[in-house]
């Protein structure tokens, strides 16, 4: 499976920065794909939701490079899939580990832009070659940084999770309610309308589903 994961890491990194733009690099999609491949979709998606929310609040406006949430979801999902049946505590430990390693991996995107700029200075009129070099580096960034990052994430998780006892499942509801509340602020609707629509959704779900 390792070559398949390495290939996926490269494709996700390309989709995120230099190619396709098919949203397969969005954290929720990354977690869904890895979860379906490994048969641990439910726990993979917990991390997918977390990193997707980071992505939705940290937008790539203009030339800004946002946090590499694709890596976060990739590393989390790989570790969660390898760990098999996990508890909520373990899931949160993996999230923290992936979250910490996400920052140096984000820096690699700056590095990629700098490398591309240096090639562009050297061969300004060879556009085809520059595009090809950029795509190769982008793919390699995924394979190397995402791969090494995921391995480090597994190491941190293995060390940390033994310190924390299993948490009851209602903590997941508290966790989800808090991040749903925070996420609400990002919708462009007036506050009362937001609350009414949210409560309406809740009532519909309680009565109908």
């Amino acid at each position: 499976m390792i070559p398949a994961y390495a290939l996926l890491a490269g494709i996700f990194a390309m989709d995120r920065t230099t190619a396709f733009n098919f949203a397969i690099s969005r954290p929720f999609a990354v977690s869904a794909i890895i979860g379906l491949m490994c048969g641990n979709l439910e726990w993979c998606l917990i991390g997918g939701v977390f990193f997707e929310l980071i992505g939705l609040m940290d937008l790539p406006v203009g030339t800004r490079i946002p946090s590499d949430d694709t890596f976060g979801a990739f590393a989390y999902s790989l570790v969660a899939a390898q760990a098999g049946t996990i508890t909520l505590t373990q899931a949160l430990c993996i999230i923290i580990a992936a979250f910490i390693i996400m920052f140096p991996v984000t820096y690699s995107a700056y590095l990629l832009r700098r490398i591309n700029a240096s090639f562009q200075d050297k061969y300004p009129d060879r556009e085809g070659l520059l595009i090809l070099i950029g795509q190769i580096f982008s793919f390699l960034r995924g394979v190397l940084f995402y791969g090494i990052g995921a391995a480090l994430c597994y190491f941190f998780y293995a060390v940390f999770h033994t310190f924390f006892p299993p948490l009851p499942n209602f903590v997941l509801i508290v966790f989800l309610a808090a991040i749903c509340g925070y996420f609400m602020a990002y919708f462009n609707i007036i506050i009362w309308e937001k609350l009414i629509l949210f409560v309406a959704g809740g009532v519909i779900s309680w009565l109908l589903f």
Binding site: N169, F170, I173, C180, I189, F198, G201
Partner: peptide
């Protein structure tokens, strides 16, 4: 926003509690 409300309540309804 409606879907967020539906998802959260669904978790509570079918969760352990």
């Amino acid at each position: 926003v409606i879907l967020v409300g539906m998802i959260l309540v669904n978790f509570i309804k079918y969760g352990e509690q």
